[in-house]
Design a protein around this nucleic acid. Sequence first.
DNA 1: GATGAATGAGCCTTCATTCAT
DNA 2: CATGAATGAAGGCTCATTCAT
Lengths: 196, 196, 196, 196
Amino acid sequence: MKKNKPKYRQIIDAAVIVIAENGYHQAQVSKIAKQAGVADGTIYLYFKNKEDILISLFQEKMGNFVEMIEEKIAGKETAAEKLLMMVETHFNILSDDPHLAIVTQLELRQSNKDLRLKINEVLKGYLSLVEQILSNGKESGEFSPTLDVRLARQMIFGTMDETVTTWVMNDQKYDITELAGPVHRLLLSGCQKQDN
Amino acid sequence: MKKNKPKYRQIIDAAVIVIAENGYHQAQVSKIAKQAGVADGTIYLYFKNKEDILISLFQEKMGNFVEMIEEKIAGKETAAEKLLMMVETHFNILSDDPHLAIVTQLELRQSNKDLRLKINEVLKGYLSLVEQILSNGKESGEFSPTLDVRLARQMIFGTMDETVTTWVMNDQKYDITELAGPVHRLLLSGCQKQDN
Amino acid sequence: MKKNKPKYRQIIDAAVIVIAENGYHQAQVSKIAKQAGVADGTIYLYFKNKEDILISLFQEKMGNFVEMIEEKIAGKETAAEKLLMMVETHFNILSDDPHLAIVTQLELRQSNKDLRLKINEVLKGYLSLVEQILSNGKESGEFSPTLDVRLARQMIFGTMDETVTTWVMNDQKYDITELAGPVHRLLLSGCQKQDN
Amino acid sequence: MKKNKPKYRQIIDAAVIVIAENGYHQAQVSKIAKQAGVADGTIYLYFKNKEDILISLFQEKMGNFVEMIEEKIAGKETAAEKLLMMVETHFNILSDDPHLAIVTQLELRQSNKDLRLKINEVLKGYLSLVEQILSNGKESGEFSPTLDVRLARQMIFGTMDETVTTWVMNDQKYDITELAGPVHRLLLSGCQKQDN
DNA sequence: GATGAATGAGCCTTCATTCAT
DNA sequence: CATGAATGAAGGCTCATTCAT
C-alpha cells in the first residue's frame, strides 16, 4: 500500500506547504517535489497525476478531520455538547495548522469542477456527521421537533466555513479558537427555538 | 465613461454566459469576445485585462444586488422583516438568473487570491448592510443586546451562501425561493435567543 | 482557407528541412517554428497539432506527386510509356528535392501507427494510378492477360521504393535518375512475360 | 557468453511480443521486463541499453532467417528453383510468426536512423544471398547476361517486402504463402527477359 | 474606434537508466 | 546474480495580450 510509505505523506505535506505559500496556480509539481526532497518523477510513483495529489491531500486531511471530531464527541451526552465539541475541534485543527487552513479555505477552491466534485464526496462524511448530531438532538428533545435538519446543517456548516474563511482572509491575525463558544451559542439558539 | 457604452455591458453579459456554460478555466478571452460579438482586441478597449472583466462583472452584478435589496427593505419596519426581505431577495435574484448563480457560487471562486480579495471588497457593501440590520435589531430590542454583530453576520451570510451553493451544486433542481422562510426563521432564532 | 496563406507552406517547407537535417525525433515544434521564422504559437494557428503538420506535409508533397505524374503520363500512348514516365518522374522529383527524399523514405516511417495509416490513405491515390496503368496495359494487350494487377502493383511500388531508399541510405551519392530506364525495363519484362 | 543464457532469449522473445501487441512506442523497458518475468534492472545485465535489445532481436531473428533460407536452397539446382524456395521460405517464416511479422514490417521501422542503419547491416547478409542467386543465374544462362544484379536484387527484395507489408497492414487476413508462386513468376520473368 | 493575426512564456508527465540492497 | 525504487531531462501546447492596419 503506497499510502503507508513515508514518501506518500511527505509529498502531501509538501503540497500543503507549497500551495499555502505560493497559491494553487503557482504550485508546480516540481516545486512540490523539491519541497518534499524527492525527484519530480518520484511524485508519479505515488500519485496518478497532479490532481490526484490534491484529492489525496484533501482525503487525508479531511478524513483525519472527521475521525478526530468523531473521537472527540464520542464521550459527549447531549447534542449541544457534541455541537460545541465539533465547532471547537473544527476551529482548533485549522488554527493549529495555518497552512492547511489556507489550502482548504482559499486555494483548493480554485480547483476545477471535477476536483471540487471529488472534494465534495469527502465532505459528505462531515456533513453526515452534522446531520446525525442534529437528528440526535431532535430525538432527545433538545432541538425543536420541526427543525429542518438539512437547512440547519447548511447553517452550521456555512457559518463555520464563513467564520474560518474570514479569519484566513484576515491573515489569521486573531485567535479563532475563542470564537468557538460564541459561534456555538449562536447556532444552538437557531436549532432550539426556530419556531417560537 | 466606458461603463455607459453598450459594448461594456455586452461584454460582461457575454462573460457571465461563457463562464456559466464552460466553467471558469474554459472561459478564454476569445470565447467571451465571440459571444459578445466583438473582436478579441476590442475587449481591451473596455477592460484593462481579463481579471478586470471578472471584477467588473462582480461589481456590476453585486452592486445591483445590494441596490435591489436596499430598495426592498426600505419600507420595512422591523429588523426581522428586513432580514426576511433580504433573504428572499437574495434567493430570488439568483433563482431568476441561473447563469449568474453558477458564476457567483462556483466558477468565480476558482479565481486566484488577488481576484478574490477584490471580490471581497465588493462584498463588503453587502456585509455592511447585514450588519446594519443587525445593529438596528439590537437597538430596537428585537435582537439580544449581547449579540455579536460580526459573528451573526458571518452566520447569516455563511448560511445563505451555503444554501445557495448546495442548490447550485444540485443543478438548481428544486425551488430555492421556498427556502427563504425556513432559513429566515432559523437565522432569526439564532439572533433573538443566543444567550438563554 | 488556411492552406492558401503563405505561412502554411512556409511551415511545411520548414518542417521538411528540419526533419531532414535533424531526424524525426529531433524535429521539435520550436525548431520548425524557428526555421519557418514564426513564433511557436503561430504553428497552432495553421495546424491542429504536431502530427497534423506531418500529415499535411505528406498530403501536400505527395498530392503534388500524384498530380505531376498524372500530367506527365497524360500524353503517352502505351502503358509501357506511361510506366516509364512514372518511374522517371518518381525518381526526378525525389532527386530534385534531397530533403524531401530523406523525409519520405526514412524519417516519416518512424511515425506512429496512426500517422502511418493516414499516410497510407494519401498513398492510395498513387497506388490506384499504378493499377490503372496496369489495367490499361492488360486491355491493350501489352501486358499478359493473366497478370495479377495487385501483385504487379506491389512489385512496381516495392521496387521503386526500395531503389529510392537504398539511394537515400547511400547518402544520395549516385544519380538515381539514371536508374529509371533500367528499373523500367526490369519491371516491364515482369509484366509482359510473367507466364511463359 | 550472455547469448547462451536462458534469460537472453527470454527477454528477446518478450520484446517481440510486447512490441507486436503494444507498438514500438508503447514498448517500454519495464513492460518487456514484466513480460519476460524479470526485473527492470536485469535487462541491463544482458543488454547495453534499449537499442541493444532491438538490434539483438533483429540479429537473432534475421540471422536465423538467412540460415534457414540457405539450408532450404542448398539442394536446389537452378537459380529459378532457389528463388522460388527463397520467396516461399521468406513468406513461410513470417506467416508462421505473426508477431515477428508485425515487428519487422511495421514496428521496427519506427526506430531512429541509427538503429535502422544497424538493422541494415544485418540485412546485408540477406541481400548478398539474393545477389549470389542472381549471379549464379546469369552464369548458368538462366538469366539475361545484361541483368543488373544490384537493381534486380532491389526489385526482388522490394517486391517481397512490399507484399509482406501489405499483408500485415491488412491484418494478415489472407494466406500470404499462396502468393509465393505468383510473386516468384513475376520476379522471374523480370530477370529472364529484361531486354527483349 | 475596431480588428484579429501573431506572439512566447510556462509546465505536467514519461521512461530509460542507475545503484543500494 | 537479481532486484525495483528512485532519478531527472525534455517538449508539445495554451491563451492573455499586443499592435499594425
